[in-house]
Write a protein that binds this DNA or RNA. Sequence first.
RNA 1: GCUCGAGUGGUGGAAUUGGUAGACACGUUGGACUUAAAAUCCAAUGGCCAUUGUGGCCGUGCGGGUUCAAGUCCCGCCUCGAGUACCA
Length: 970
Amino acid sequence: MQLEKDEITMNYNFREIEAKWQKYWAENETFKAFNNSEKPKYYALSMFPYPSGAGLHVGHPLGYIATDIYARYKKHKGFNVLHPMGYDSFGLPAEQYAIQTGQHPAITTEANIKRYREQLDQLGFSFDWSREVRTSNPSYYKWTQWVFIQLFNSWYNKTSDKAEGISDLIALFEKDGNTTVHAICDDDAPIFSAEDWNGFSDRTKQEILLKYRLTYLADTEVNWCPALGTVLANDEIVNGVSERGGHPVIRKKMTQWSMRITAYAQRLLDGLDTIDWPQPLKDSQTNWIGRSEGASVIFKVIHNSDAERSRSDRNVISTSLSHHHQIEVFTTRPDTIFGVSFMTLAPEHELVSKITTQEQKEAVNAYVEATAKRSERDRMADVKTISGVFTGAYAEHPFTKEPVPIWIGDYVLASYGTGAVMAVPCGDQRDYDFAKHYDIAIPNIFEGVDISKEAFADKATTVIANSDFLNGLSYKKAVKAAIYELEKLGQGEGKINYRLRDAVFSRQRYWGEPFPVYYVDGMPQMIADEHLPLELPEVEKYLPTETGEPPLGNATDWAWNSIENKVVSNEKIDNTTIFPLELNTMPGWAGSSQYFNRYMDSKNDKAIYSKEAIEYWEDVDLYIGGSEHATGHLLYSRFWQKFLFDMGIAPKDEFAKKLINQGMITGTSAFVYRLAGTNSYLSNGLIESEEVDSIHVDVSLISASDELDIEALKEWQPEFSDAEFILEDGKYIVGREIEKMSKRWFNVVNPDAICEEYGADSLRLYEMFLGPLEQSKPWNTAGITGVHSFLKKLWRLYHTGPNGEFYVTDSPPLEGQGEALKSLHKTIKKVEEDIKNFSFNTSVSTFMICVNELTSQKCSSKAILESLAILVSPYAPHIAEELWEKLGHKESIAEAPFPKFQEKYVVESSKEYPISFNGKMRFTMKLPLDMGKDEIEAAVMGHEKTQAQLQGRTPKKVIVVPGKIVNIVG
RNA sequence: GCUCGAGUGGUGGAAUUGGUAGACACGUUGGACUUAAAAUCCAAUGGCCAUUGUGGCCGUGCGGGUUCAAGUCCCGCCUCGAGUACCA
């Protein structure tokens, strides 16, 4: 009995150790960060999770572990480290669950968070939980609403190139009208003088101001998803269907809140140069913003009076110009303007109905209707099919004054540029194809180029011809000349166009932040700060109302009784007026767009965060998360941060200096193969040419050698209970395929079972060991025994007493420990380099080598073993703490300084030998340092022999000058 | 189509940035301990050939090139992955 007990205390008992230290860290607040400190600050952040019902799977912790290692390392290096965690707890799944079950999303969310917290706790992260945020907590979304109000009260001044208060804009209007104001605003903002402005009614003023605000209400064409009953932002649509659920999306006009992110397009682009983010992510943001330089050109529509006014002589094309209709196009090739042989409008273009001639009306209407019916997805699916129709109208070429036929075609997108193009078939393949298809002229304006087969689009070798004043010019010069002439005519100018659209901010959902908005006579008003937050009301149903209003419309008392809800500042309250509230809620990205700043002072109730807090922490030093947020969260957050910077609320205009995308951990799905139309299942090796259906089965039913536990499968789902299994070699072998980890593929692996069997330290090490952090890789539990046995060896290194008890010697490290010191310092150097490069996978190998070396050297030096424990502690913190305590320390190992690398203990293993040829220095050879004189001579001689053979001469003699130089003579 | 990234043993992956390719781990094989299993430990493990000599040849997707020296640099292809998609 006695023996057994001793064995337990002497062996590596990870369950006991991990529970003990997790409790210790929580009780002692070991990882609490302070908002003022003598130490330098370091802010390490992982993207906070959405707490889904499925709990954490092994893919989630990958990024958290990496951030944790770095945070713990920085703490060892003497930094005051902020390493917080929270929950992005508003979201669609909880709402859909509520629709199905009637369960309030707050309740499911709370339960999911509790589960997440348990799972996170068992992995031993160094989070400062005192700063936790939850985006669905009123105390948090109060500040999301507050930022919204700041955006509403701001406009973008192009002159100072930053956002400014709306009251400054009003002052400018009162003084000079808007003729001198250079602002980013809606295109349809009217032009007015100071007198006009001062004479406008209050309502007109509000309407005008709305066109300038950074968040504004407007009729916009939106992506409407009928199945979800809500609008979606562009980044929430993948391949023409909704990202969540995969439902079809159509375009529809609705009154929606939008964010004027386009005001920041250029700064969002420029800012990328100042931050250390992965190139692919920068590329995708650059792409998304889509800057292109070119020109806008105005084509006047030739007024066909007959077509519009009388049917009698409709065949006559009048050359009188209608100044009401002009088509603005954007082009990146103004140099090809003399190659224009037609124009194309998007079917949705507003001029289509106005310019179409009577006789083309039928065909045009039919075409417009047909395109409207096609979903976005269909339209994308067949980009090859050329379709379009002639409007019957003509525009006047700005230079030649020739009539140019105006067509409509669905290859022109309403959402890009002006929704209209000047078609230059000789220089653009799409225009070329369209012209060929409809037999439109293809004038050639390029010197010495054959365009009989395809368009010519190579800017570098372009020489313009047949183009009046552009003849003989290169691309660059012709662009300049064309723009100059267009400007002279007043029919165009140089222009930079962005693909980026303003972001729609309204969602017809329940489980999101309510807008802090009420309406007076249909005009939006902001709720007074002192009444924030405006809390989500209870509703009986989470679906849209019968009249088609968003779910909040079900909360009638709430929506109409604004006085009881204290939404209006006290002085505005009178007992007779009723102010309706905004019924939409904010999108998922609202809550995540400034949470990183809120962590700095998350319990602050008076302000979004204190000035002291943000001036101390400034920005995130290291941000780790998935690349799927490239054009969503990560772009919106940069936008909000720049806005907060303009307002003087944030000291930095980029929120994260460095960002790393951890790769996805994919699952390895398992399949059984049912013979078509039967209840028999074939083992993987027997399929051959049989017709089979592949069916996913739960990966927990499969052994490491891909053998299926048939009895367990029969238990698992009743459909297999009387199935027949056809075996190979007495086994049923499943098929394997790598897929995203997902509940529906039954390939999810939870960290819980692994922690139970091997411990959190093993899981942490293994996830790092799996491969480079940024690479995606399939989960495979097979190798975990390797890192687990490393931890056991590490433990044994400290337990070399006669009965396996803890044993170290106090002798000074230098005495008889030369080799051990070399091993240690090699390890310090490598591990520190690895951490700095985020190559955590290779440092796990380094630890293994180190422990093997120290074990075979029988190292028991306390000083060396102490240093080793610190090195390991960021990776495997629990075992390191336990060893640290056994080494006699009272404080947590987290406080210990990181060991310093000392060159003197690590002697170089190879050296550059200068090789001279008859005394003349020729080149160097790197050779191992432990080579003796003869070996060096042999090595150099080998090289000389091959050289001599190549050059057809006899080899010369090699002479080694000890310690210095190798000479080849002869 | 365009943009980025990657191709190294049976597998995951190393390689100090041009200097002994395959570290470390998994897997496999053989051995020790054990009544047995588990656990642990030891050895072998890129391919081919030779050999009871401790040797040789070929090898980092393919074909060229630069260099004393190339997984690494240059040119031309092939394959896979990710993102994006009629962007005028």
